[in-house]
Amino acid sequence: MAEVELLIESRAMLGESPVWDADQGCLYWADLYAPSIERYRLSDGQQQRWPMPETLGAFGRSVEGRLIVAMRSGLYFFSPANGELEYLCCPSEEPRAETRFNDGKVAPNGRFVIGSMDEVERSRPLGSLYCVDIAGNSSHLKSGFIVANGLAWSADGRRMMFSDTRRDTLYTADYCLESGAIESPRVFAVTDPALHGRPDGGAFDMAGGYWSAGVFGGVLNYWDAEGRLARQVRLPVPGPTMPCFGGADMKTLFITTLRKGMTPDELKQAPLSGSVFAVEVDVPGVPIAVFGGAGTQASSLHRKTLVGSCP
């Protein structure tokens, strides 16, 4: 049985979006409703916190040491070095009063894919997936989500995973590295909230397996490449939100959690809710790309729209 380690004791209302920075040996993560971005250095436990002006959705690493951050009003560059925010764009019809940005991750081609969700009723298919490049050009990838979630890419970058948390469904699709398009989306697995929790954030390993946070179920679910549940890791809290791989050998899963919506009795039974945990696994994870990094045009002087198809 895997040993679950408490890494960062926190009372985050909605801990999310863990991002590993191998260059610094640091884990970034966010408390979406604080709102703030946090950084934890593994070598000595040093922590740093940057308050944000708006509710967060997700973020990723960007070129020049910056982060690409999705907030309520759009996407921004953030510089941890000086605390500066710079507006980039707001994809398509977002934001709306009924929605907010949710899960987001840098794709293998260096573009940022961000999903949205129905924030008010959590039952209407108002969410979408968008793709944004370093120059701020955006394209609409897919609509019809209640809560767009679970973004991850395989080691070769050609297979994509995503989920709709409120539909209890994991999807897979072919991903076109050249255009950034999602092709042939299909159901990968249908989950049972009583057994698996609900599918939240996810991460691919190098064997093609997919780790999914089973929010409200207190488990991490490991689905093999064929969509079979191969392993579960139980956590000491009911609300895991997203795993990400990191550590020197990329065999550590860092897991953010929530305490939002929990009753006083539930918090008494799971007082570490909102903390960050770590689990050692046997298969290393797929490294996450940098926004505007290899495979993209990093200069705003060379704007291009995200169109076209794979040969």
Rank of each mutant, 00 (worst) to 15 (best):
A97P: 12
E98I: 00
E98T: 02
T99Y: 08
T99L: 12
R100L: 14
R100Q: 13
F101D: 13
F101H: 13
F101T: 09
N102M: 12
N102S: 13
N102D: 13
G104N: 09
G104Y: 11
G104V: 14
K105E: 14
V106Q: 07
V106F: 08
A107P: 08
A107Y: 07
P108K: 07
G110Y: 08
G110P: 06
R111N: 09
R111S: 05
R111M: 09
R111K: 06
V113R: 07
I114N: 08
I114W: 05
G115Q: 08
G115K: 08
M117I: 03
D118T: 02
D118P: 02
D118S: 02
E119W: 05
V120F: 01
E121R: 04
E121P: 00
E121Y: 01
E121K: 04
S123W: 03
P125S: 01
P125N: 00
L126F: 04
L126P: 02
G127N: 06
G127I: 09
S128R: 05
S128W: 05
L129S: 04
L129Q: 04
C131T: 10
V132L: 02
A135K: 09
A135C: 15
G136E: 06
S138N: 04
S139V: 09
S139P: 00
H140C: 06
H140Q: 06
L141C: 06
K142P: 00
K142F: 08
S143H: 03
S143C: 03
G144P: 05
I146C: 06
I146R: 04
I146T: 10
V147D: 10
V147Y: 13
V147R: 13
A148Q: 08
A148I: 13
A148F: 10
A148T: 10
N149V: 15
N149P: 15
G150I: 11
L151N: 11
L151K: 12
A152K: 11
S154T: 13
S154F: 12
A155D: 13
D156M: 12
D156Y: 12
G157D: 13
R158Y: 02
R158G: 11
R158C: 07
R158W: 02
R158A: 10
R159T: 15
R159F: 04
M160Y: 07
M161H: 15
M161S: 14
M161W: 07
F162D: 14
D164V: 05
D164N: 06
T165M: 12
T165I: 08
T165C: 08
T165F: 07
R166V: 05
R166P: 02
R166W: 13
R166N: 15
R167C: 09
R167Y: 02
R167Q: 14
D168W: 14
T169K: 10
T169Q: 10
L170W: 05
L170G: 03
Y171W: 11
Y171T: 01
T172Q: 12
T172G: 09
T172P: 01
A173F: 00
A173P: 05
D174V: 00
Y175T: 01
L177G: 15
L177C: 10
S179R: 01
S179K: 01
S179N: 05
S179Q: 03
A181Y: 00
A181H: 07
A181M: 04
A181P: 04
A181V: 01
A181I: 00
I182C: 02
E183Q: 09
S184I: 02
R186F: 01
R186E: 14
V187I: 14
V187S: 07
V187A: 10
